[in-house]
């Protein structure tokens, strides 16, 4: 049943291309959000490291890819790679600061670092365009064949394809001994060194990996919208990522993506009515999810299936 469900998930995602041709930009956003939440899940859900500043990597990837294209290199795939390297490198450099032990230092240092980056982008309008955003991003056709069109057709398929490939990689990694060790660290960080695991080194690797994923998500946004705004680095983005993750279910890759999709569509529907309304509901959802505890949508689904079986 599982492979059938999985195939159904991806076919349904792909069918959006024909079923909702008017909404392709929105679906592209959903795919990008899903990749961002996948990256958060690797860090928070699997390795158990808390962060309030994951937008730093998303934003760095977005600005990196955006600037690269603006400066005249619009090849999309190498742009993604550059963004991944850039964000991964920042992850590698900041990981020792974040992983000093305990949730509180991790929360505060990640928050501080992302705010620093956001403020730097804001105060360097010469480089980033500041509050006006980065304009003049021109992306070449994907693989030299598929031009980015106004309807977002190429953008959607491109984002979905990248999401699919990186999902496969993430699934591979989480099922590996490395992934098992991360679950062990999250399950009992005191026992792992007594098994001989260099906990710090494993967490640094997970942090850098997650950062690279977030960087690619950011780069995808920059390339598909041909624009980068300060939004990419905002606290709101970090917080919403966590919400999507918890909404879908922690430590489950499909849950992460499901949460992102549900969130993005709900955002679209509700904020059309009124942005305030949306902020209120997202707040209520956060409070409700926190009080209800772990599991998310996927947990709910599993519980329903389990009851039926």
């Amino acid at each position: 049943m599982r492979p059938a469900l999985e195939a159904g998930f991806w076919l349904l995602a792909l069918s959006g291309f024909w079923l909702m041709p008017e909404q392709l930009p929105l679906l592209g956003q959903a795919a990008i959000a899903a990749l961002f939440v996948l990256s958060l899940d690797l860090l928070v859900g699997y390795a158990g490291v808390l962060t309030l500043g994951h937008a730093a990597f998303f934003g760095l990837g977005a600005y990196g890819a955006g600037l690269l294209a603006q400066q005249g290199w619009g090849e999309p795939l190498s742009g993604l790679l550059a963004a991944a390297l850039l964000a991964g490198l920042l992850g590698l450099l900041t990981a020792p600061l974040v992983l000093r032990g305990g949730d509180l230092p991790a929360l505060m240092v990640t928050l501080g670092l992302s705010l620093m980056l956001g403020e730097a982008a804001n105060k360097l309008p010469g480089l980033t365009g500041g509050a006006d955003g980065l304009l003049g991003v021109e992306i070449w056709p994907v693989l030299g064949l598929f031009r980015f069109d106004l309807h977002g057709r190429t953008a959607f398929l491109y984002a979905l394809a990248v999401l699919f490939l990186l999902f496969l990689l993430a699934r591979r990694i989480t099922a590996s001994p490395f992934g098992l060790a991360l679950r062990g660290i999250r399950g009992n960080a005191r026992r792992m060194p007594a098994l001989g695991t260099p906990v710090r080194r494993r967490l640094v690797a997970a942090y850098a990996l997650s950062a690279a994923y977030a960087g690619i998500a950011g780069a995808l946004l920059a390339q598909t919208t041909q624009f980068v705004s300060l939004d990419a680095l905002s606290f709101q983005r970090s917080a919403e990522g966590l919400l999507m993750l918890v909404l879908g279910g922690l430590g489950a890759l499909y849950g992460a993506m499901l949460g992102a999709i549900v969130f993005t569509l709900a955002h679209h529907l509700l904020s059309e009515m009124s942005p305030l309304f949306w902020q209120f509901w997202i707040g209520l959802a956060l409070v409700g999810l926190a009080l209800a505890g772990r599991g998310g949508l996927l947990g709910l689904g599993a519980a329903l299936l389990g009851r039926r079986a």
Binding site: R172, I173, A175, S176, P177
Partner: peptide, 9 residues
Amino acid sequence: LTGRWWRPA
């Protein structure tokens, strides 16, 4: 082997 990330556990 817990640094290996390709072959499934």
